[in-house]
Amino acid sequence: MRIGSPKETYAADEGLFRTRTQWAWFGILLLSLVLFPFLSNLYWLYLVCLISIHVISATGLNILTGYTGQVSLGQAAFMGVGAYTVAWLDNHAATPFVLNLLAAGGVTTVVGMVAGLPSLRVKGLYLAIATIAASFILHFVFLNWESVTGGARGMNIAPPQAFGHELANADTFYWLVMPVTVVMVLLAANLFRTRVGRAFIAIRDRDISASVLGISLPVYKLMSFAIASFYAGIAGGFYAYFFGAINPESFPLLMSIFYLAAVIVGGLGTILGSILGAVFMTLTPELLRYGVDVMEPFVDDASALLSPVRTMVFGLLIVGFLLFEPHGLAEIWRRVRRFFHLWPFRN
């Protein structure tokens, strides 16, 4: 059982991790992330790289949708912008990958802010629909601006080069994507220790009151769009490098729904939720694939069922969590933690 955690200064009490136990767990997490590649195989490394990309994008979406309350169905399309930026630079400018990724973040930020302009005029469901429109328009651009995007054929991207090595496979790519993910998640968490994060939440909870209390809605809504898009852009850039090829169909509306599902399942408005949601939503299809493999000898054409079952399970997860566990996996996690904090006393 844990009782209280006295502090000497306000600064200490404002910390991201407030108890020694929390610091210890964070250390253990970092250590296991460092050790993971040495103890694991390529298949798991591949999955973890994919999860990392999803975590970045889901964290961005959670800032926008979970914290600021602006529902967006454009996250995948924004990732597309980042991916195409990286692809174009890779094919035309031969700039180093760090620069390409930053450019992907930058370009997507600008595009995301433009796509967020309707949020100044409409909100709630109307805004969600406007983001659907934005993603259709972006898809149109990917498909038809052939001189830049390669049209329906898409583009190929060479693996990133670092210190004379090609980061072509998951075992090397991991060392690029994982540190960036950790940093970006921490940056997002910091945001909500400050006035900017409070302004976001205030807009979500009561936008008009927030405005009367001194929060400029246009500024902070666009800022939220900008940050979410920056995350999407970086995630999209990694996506392009990771898969080595992109085309307009790489970023369908369904993928935006996937991210929305991830933040709902994980927990809207919690950083931990973005991580848990991305992990859960990436591993679920793998689990389904495993199930299909098991069923293969008994059911005709079991592998053909994989894709529809996956679609259905995504839907069921969204519906189920919203109905029965609207605060997501993060809330379940909190309950578990509380149980152990209070143990052996019952709450």
């Binding site: 940056l187 945001l191 220790r193 006035r195 939440i201 929060i215 940050i227």
Partner: peptide, 22 residues
């Protein structure tokens, strides 16, 4: 705490980038 701190929004300056690096 955060509700009350939010009141201080009008007399603080931190922007998003500074906020993220804290």
């Amino acid at each position: 705490m955060d509700n009350v701190k939010l009141g201080a929004h009008v007399r603080t300056r931190t922007g998003p980038l500074a906020a993220m690096w804290y």
